[in-house]
């Protein structure tokens, strides 16, 4: 039984691994290969950050939060604009001090937002169909997209973390020409790793984290022993809001804060399908696989396609993640690390 179930997964893994190794076999230079690999991992980290938000809310309330991308945009806008306005308002020096204060304020705004969403969206919909809740988060998405523009404006804004965007060469002695790595990307990776460790500790070690996991397992039973669901929802949306803020900061610093952030966040969907809707490590590893996969496919799969069938060859990055997610849904619907349904028979 187990073998039958794992067979397709192993096969899919083997195909992916073969795809990963193929460019090396066909003779692309190792230095360039590693560069693409690292670039993919960095993009993956950013996907992971958004996927984390999805997983948190899905775990604790069973709600598929469509608004996570909009929350990323909203948080990034708040951060960018506050960092810009604060020096004028209260005379705080621009740059790092203003950015720090703006970060704290934006975090406060996201917590407030969580409270409002729980009050006026989730609470009235208690014990309704999951579809009703999904639609509600869809509404929240459009509201946040628009309302964000109303408050913060609709231009492209910059978040300046004070890190140079210039790529640095590493391992120059090992490869001819070295490998180009952006310092900003490295810092993003460190931030993401720190956030994941923080979340893991919160979920595993604190009483609140335990209560969140309990609610995720069985919200009725959690309620019966006195865990107040309303409070738990506020907490989990606030945490997801904080994660959105971190993702928005890192992404905004890289690409500029603009409307397309909310759409890029949809890339988190295949990530959670791959990693499993209920697994925090799954969100991270899923993000990395998607990030690396699509970069590799774009760079190494595109040119042969052009050569063989005279296709245009571009845009692989856009669909690769979704095709991968689809394949995964077929062979392993709970994702790589999703919680297996425990049934007593």
């Amino acid at each position: 039984m187990a073998a039958k179930k794992n067979g397709p997964v192993i096969a899919l893994g083997a195909v992916l691994a073969a795809g990963l190794a193929a460019p090396l076999v066909t003779g692309s230079p190792l230095g360039f290969y590693l560069e693409v690999l690292i670039g993919g991992l960095m993009a993956g980290v950013l996907y992971s950050l958004v996927a984390l938000g999805f997983v948190l809310i899905f775990k604790a309330s069973g709600v598929f939060n469509f608004a996570q991308g909009a929350m990323v945009l909203f948080a990034a806008l708040a951060l960018a604009r506050l960092a810009e306005w604060l020096p004028a308002w209260i005379g705080i020096p621009a740059g790092f001090p203003a950015l720090t204060l703006a970060f704290v304020l934006a975090a406060g705004i996201m917590v407030g937002l969580a409270w409002v969403i729980e009050r006026i969206v989730l609470r009235p919909l208690v014990a309704q169909d999951p579809v009703a809740l999904l639609m509600a988060t869809l509404g929240v998405t459009f509201f946040l997209d628009g309302f964000g523009q109303t408050i913060w404006g609709s231009d492209i804004y910059k978040i300046d973390l004070g890190i140079s965007k210039d790529p640095t060469m590493i391992l120059e002695s090992m490869f001819q020409g070295g490998i180009l790595v952006s310092k900003e990307d490295l810092i993003a990776a460190v931030i993401a790793a720190g956030l994941v460790i923080l979340l893991a500790l919160f979920f595993q070690k604190t009483a609140t984290g335990r209560a969140l996991r309990a609610v995720a397992d069985d919200h009725q039973a959690a309620q019966s022993i006195g865990i107040p669901l309303n409070r738990i929802w506020v907490i989990v949306w606030a945490v997801a809001g904080f994660v959105a803020l971190v993702a928005g900061m890192v992404w905004g610093a890289k690409l500029g804060v603009q409307f397309s952030l909310a759409q890029l966040a949809l890339k988190a969907l295949p990530v959670v399908i791959l990693g499993g809707f209920t697994s925090i490590p799954g969100a991270i590893i899923g993000g990395l696989i998607i990030g690396v996969g699509e970069k590799m496919a774009e760079v190494f799969l595109g040119p042969p396609l052009v050569k063989m069938w005279d296709l245009a060859g571009g845009g692989i990055e856009n669909w690769f993640a979704y095709v991968l997610a689809l394949l995964f849904l077929m062979v392993r619907p709970e994702g790589l690390f999703g919680e297996k349904h425990i049934d007593r028979v």
Partner: peptide, 24 residues
């Protein structure tokens, strides 16, 4: 406190974690 029909343990939590949630 109510103990619900059909036990309703938190399946993915360990037995001890289940007990600890009771003290929330």
């Amino acid at each position: 406190v109510q103990v619900m029909e059909g036990r309703h343990c938190f399946a993915h939590l360990s037995v001890e974690e289940n007990l600890l949630t009771g003290a929330y």
